[in-house]
Amino acid sequence: MSKGWTRAAALLALLLAGCQRGMPPVAFHAEGRPPRLSDWHVVEARGGRLVLNRGVVPYDLNTPLFTDYAHKLRTIWMPRGVSARYDPDDTFDFPVGTIISKTFYYPRAADGTFTHVARTYDSSKDFAGEGLDLSRVHLVETRLLVRRADGWTALPYVWNDAQTEATLQRTGAVEPLTLVADDGSREDFNYVVPDESQCASCHAQDWISRKVHPIGPKARHVNKDYAYAGGVENQLAHLAKLGYLSGAPAPAQAPRDADWSDPKAPLDARARAYLDINCGHCHNAHGAANTTGLTLDWRTPEDRHLGLCKPPTAAGQGTGDHLFDIVPGLPDESILPFRMASKEPGVMMPELGRSTVHREGVALIKAWIAAQSGSCVAIH
């Protein structure tokens, strides 16, 4: 059998695989900024569904980053013959050609109004196979992280009102929405799509180089089960089986952080997982907030670096006239939950990625601080 025939057969197989889902194979663009999400053929709106192309693998996180109560569909795609290298602590080392997508969406509110979206954690009715049922959800944006030869490129695509296509919005966008809770209460807010430069403020692991890297695909975040179309399987094991991940240990030997919303998990583990994913990408030794002296990633010991009895580096409205980042046993005297509960620019934390307050997240951190023992009196 000739090599030419083999290559032709492989190409035909790829084309047929794409056609099975109604779209051409995934198109990796090594340069430039394609104007439409569909130019990549990673996820597309087809037949009332948001469809994942062949080889596009969904994944989830044990504890996700909060974004105005948005739900998120995350995916990974890689070219044939390459894989990511496992790392027990940091982001997996993804090869050139990798495309990571994250689609932000909301379940539709019961009243059927397009701009009214449900404030709920229930995603059981969102999915159609591994894609999304567009009769039940409101698509807002899909962000791509593309691994090119010179590093990662972040591309934000915003969905149109018809929910048929998403177009590149390099300068960001604002979409007015209304969150509707189960009890019928409503909260108007502006969902803000970040511009390309703002993406780097969170995704830069090193604030000196400011090179963009993924945040979520770390062993401790993705070491969990996922309900794939073919059945439930651990995500690390599934990625390894597909050839997308090399060097990974058995899931039981890999780190795993807690689900922040699991009442059966230890309070400390839940709170530390929440701070790690929501704050740790900036508040670490090399991140954008490295000058504050406050480090909130999973490596931080429970001492002053974590904020215990630590005075802020700068006074002002961001402190709420509180003296320490965390006062053990006294959440209402602590700066950390005060800033989490604010929506005021210059006060709120995180600074980007939300226009609303994560009430349940604030309650978790307050409960964690309330359970801590000790006193700041001697330091004060």
Rank of each mutant, 00 (worst) to 15 (best):
P34I: 03
G320Q: 04
W298Q: 13
A162E: 14
S375T: 15
R304C: 05
R210L: 10
A17S: 13
D259K: 06
V82Y: 04
K310T: 15
V222R: 05
G55D: 02
V232S: 09
A289C: 11
R143M: 05
G329P: 08
T178L: 02
S246N: 12
R148Q: 09
R299G: 14
H305F: 10
K3F: 11
V117I: 05
F338A: 03
D332H: 08
P328G: 04
G184K: 08
A271T: 06
G287K: 07
R136I: 01
D182C: 01
M348G: 06
K343D: 09
F92H: 15
V327L: 01
A45L: 04
R21A: 02
S83C: 12
D206S: 13
A240C: 02
A109Y: 00
A109G: 03
T167C: 10
L61Q: 14
R304T: 15
A229S: 11
K366E: 15
P266G: 10
Q205T: 09
G243D: 10
A84F: 04
G374D: 08
A314V: 13
P263L: 08
F127Q: 01
G293W: 10
S375I: 06
L306I: 08
M340A: 11
K211R: 15
R299H: 13
K310Q: 13
R143H: 06
Y226Q: 02
D303S: 12
W159S: 11
R74M: 13
A258H: 03
S261M: 08
L296R: 09
V56T: 11
H29Y: 07
G307V: 07
K264V: 06
D122K: 00
D268W: 01
L294N: 10
S123W: 00
P217M: 04
R143A: 08
Y106C: 00
G48R: 00
G216A: 15
V137I: 03
F324P: 02
I99M: 03
S246F: 02
G131V: 02
V117M: 05
T75P: 04
Y226M: 03
V232H: 04
L14S: 13
D262W: 01
L177Q: 09
G346Q: 02
S373M: 01
L73R: 08
P255N: 06
M340D: 07
T313H: 12
K211S: 14
L294P: 11
A227R: 13
I277F: 05
R136A: 03
N190E: 15
P312H: 02
S197I: 11
D268P: 01
P35A: 13
S185F: 01
S261N: 07
Y106L: 01
S373F: 01
N284T: 14
